[in-house]
Simulated scan of single mutants.
Amino acid sequence: MTLGPRVFKTGIAVTLSLYICFFLQLEPAVFAAVAALFTIQPSIYRSWRQLLDQVITNTIGAAVSLFSIYFIGDNPIIIGLLMMLVISLSLKMKMESTIPLTLVTVLAIMSTPDNENIDFILNRFLIILVGIGSALVVNLLIVPPNYKKNYLEKTTAVFQNMSLLLRTAVSNELTETSFHSQGEKLQGDIRKLEDLYKIFDEERAKLSKLKPVDVREIVVFKQMLKTLQQGEEILENIEEHYFQSGTSEEEDRLFDSHIEQLIKHHEYLFLKYEGKIKQQETDHELNEMKKSAAFFERTLDIYKQNKDQKFRLLIIASSIVEYSFHLQRLEQLIDQYYKVRKS
């Protein structure tokens, strides 16, 4: 069982909210714990944004509940209609993430016999705010997220899995069960990496004044993601088209060897970004372009010899050349990044 930072911080936020309610004699404290659970977010900006959104929608929920109690009623049908109204208002304001906690606020206020007491309503609302505030404080102070480190670690892990699959895709060395299992893991990890990049880019855009981030490095990270996405596309194309093309041993070697070259180039770029490779002025990029052009021309020749059966190979070859292009682009961006840093 893995306890990630978010799980750890959720536990602390719940504990903190319960203790605050105990010292302030706010009951029932369970609503503060629920509020803390819903408010913990994967980034500082999202926690702050969530705090503001929660305050707005929960204030609206409390106001609607108060109005209903004094002028309409609090029977189950009315409560259900209020739920629908609160959901509609939250969606209208594009604050969908606040809906669960706002509904809890409405229920906390309306589902108790003493709900006509204004002090009771304020008490319930304050309890919710304690939970929201506890979550924000914990996210700011406890294990603050290191987006750059997390992103690079995740990128490296995704590449390791992708390189294994690409190196064995044509040779068909892995068992079918293992290949599909690793493939599904790769797809899931790339989706997580896409979400992590969005958070990283979001923090840069919204909190740049508080925590400056090198925009050039963000561009490098984006290109790292694109190369992995393109590698995933190659795997999908191989699985869908390659073995239906009736390839010969020579064709297997052609595709296998070129994919191997690109994987080595990808590994080289990771080392280059980490500063483990000497920065040299070479024609490496030009050589890669020539190799990719030669590979595609050879695939085109194979297609011309048997257009009906070999058409699928062109689809795979196109995605492989696209992968090569993204690797070349990544190398350019890494070179530019280090060139600016030195200047």
Rank of each mutant, 00 (worst) to 15 (best):
T2E: 11
K9R: 15
V14D: 00
V14G: 02
F22G: 03
F23R: 05
L24E: 04
L26W: 07
V30Y: 11
V34R: 03
S43R: 02
S47H: 03
S47T: 12
W48L: 15
L52K: 13
L66N: 13
Y70R: 10
I72W: 10
L81V: 14
L85E: 02
V86P: 01
L91M: 13
K92P: 02
T98I: 04
I99Q: 09
V106E: 07
L107W: 06
M110A: 06
T112C: 01
P144N: 07
L152S: 01
T156V: 00
T156M: 07
M162Y: 01
L166R: 00
S178T: 12
Q182D: 04
K192G: 05
E194W: 02
D195A: 15
Y197N: 06
I199H: 08
D201G: 05
D201N: 12
K206S: 10
S208M: 10
L225C: 01
T227P: 02
T227A: 02
H241C: 09
G246R: 09
E249G: 06
E249H: 10
H265F: 11
H265P: 00
L271R: 13
Y273E: 00
G275I: 03
K291T: 08
A293L: 11
K304H: 14
K304F: 13
S319T: 12
S324W: 02
F325M: 05
L327D: 08
E331N: 11
V340A: 09
